[in-house]
Write a protein that binds this DNA or RNA. Structure first.
Lengths: 219, 219
DNA sequence: GTATTGGTGGATACACCGTACGGTAGCGGG
DNA sequence: CCCGCTACCGTACGGTGTATCCACCAATAC
């Protein structure tokens, strides 16, 4: 009644709900109720739930695209990668769809364009085949990293971070598994390795990959 | 009646159905019907659907683990990576859960152990922090690559591979977008770049990343 | 002024989902 | 022989996305 509803408003409240209760807790009925409207009203603005998801995704990409162009190709790539990671940490559901559907919204395309343009200016990227591989590798790394990190954060939150709660929840099974001695290296990683800073690790690996793929290869 | 049902049998038919109709098309009711049983019978073997998913995932990891140990660390890593990719191409739903939940089944742990053990023998991986980063980078790349490839394959299948069908389905929107001139680099990639062999690209990028992260860095 | 039309918003309905629950039938022990 | 227990199973509930129909109301035609 006050404001007549719109795709933007629907996407915004959908994002709010998804942030709060996850993608599984998101339903058209709840969105409609939040907007004080019957469920079927949403279908005047959106074809189906999948299109609504695309809408939400592109809103997030809009925020990522805001980082804009930096001075050098490398700074641009780093900025986009970190912005993507930040966005996924703010909207964990974003990591659930990352890489799972084609991102064709205008802002997603803008981010893709900025990334590709930056990489095409990198040394070692000589022709379009190089560029395609570089874009693929970079995006693959970002998608995988962000997914892993969000998943880790979720399990950490659900089990509790401290040693005791961890031992109590996954422990009965996982510690038994590790005690078998069949997974010594994994055991060492689990026991010794929880203290690494996530952003630092992300940045470190990102740097390594950029270095690796922009190095001149023997033709 | 004939064979009294078991976790393995349930997982097997669940995998068959998921292969055929995707993860969205998978339901406990359909699995039960396929087994000639009431839906609630499954709950005698499985706590809930999520545990069934974990079961399915670990069956796939069992196949990946079969590649076993190779002579050198590098061959081992390559074999595991390719086996993971192959498994995801055989079971596309696998890519949907890849990285989206902790993989704690025995076979998943075995694969993780083999990967970590191999990487710990790589040059340039000096302490456990290096190892943790290396494992993270590698897994991130694999997860992202496989997801991307499966997604591409799905959209290609749904739109049709040939130029005409592609132009007809995504064309009206995507070609219009690209015609705006705002995404010149993406346009070049889309128009010129479809012919790269997927496995080759995967292998190429994988090699690049392994080279990058096993190179000695200045302390 | 009245009848008709068009379009808009809502309620209802359907098919399906995961899963909680209550009953029943078969079987071992007293 | 009867009782109690256990293992199984059908039914039912609350939820989902979405198609369809219906009631209302404004504006037009006569």
């Amino acid at each position: 009644m006050p404001v007549p509803l719109s795709r933007e408003k629907i996407a915004a409240t959908a994002i709010r709900l998804a942030d709060a209760h996850g993608l599984d807790g998101l339903s058209l009925r709840k969105i409609a109720k939040e907007l004080g409207v019957g469920p079927m009203r949403l279908y005047d603005y959106v074809i189906n739930k999948s299109e609504l998801l695309d809408l939400m995704v592109d809103v997030v990409y809009a925020r990522i695209a805001e980082v804009g162009q930096r001075s050098g190709w490398r700074d641009t790539v780093l900025a986009i990668a970190h912005a993507t990671r930040d966005a996924a940490l703010d909207h964990e559901w974003f990591s659930d769809v990352l890489g799972g559907r084609p991102h064709l919204g205008p802002h997603a395309l803008a981010v893709g364009e900025a990334t590709a343009a930056a990489l095409s200016a990198a040394p070692g990227v000589r022709d379009i085949d190089d560029l395609q591989r570089a874009v693929g590798a970079l995006n693959a790394f970002i998608i995988g990293s962000v997914r892993r990190e969000v998943t880790e954060r979720r399990t950490a939150r659900s089990t509790g971070t401290d040693e005791a709660a961890f031992q109590a929840s996954l422990g009965p099974y996982l510690t038994r598994m590790l005690k078998t001695g069949r997974y010594p290296t994994v055991a060492r990683l689990v026991i010794d390795g929880a203290h690494l800073n996530a952003e630092e690790t992300f940045n470190h690996n990102l740097t390594t990959i950029l270095d690796g793929m922009t190095r001149q290869r023997p033709t």
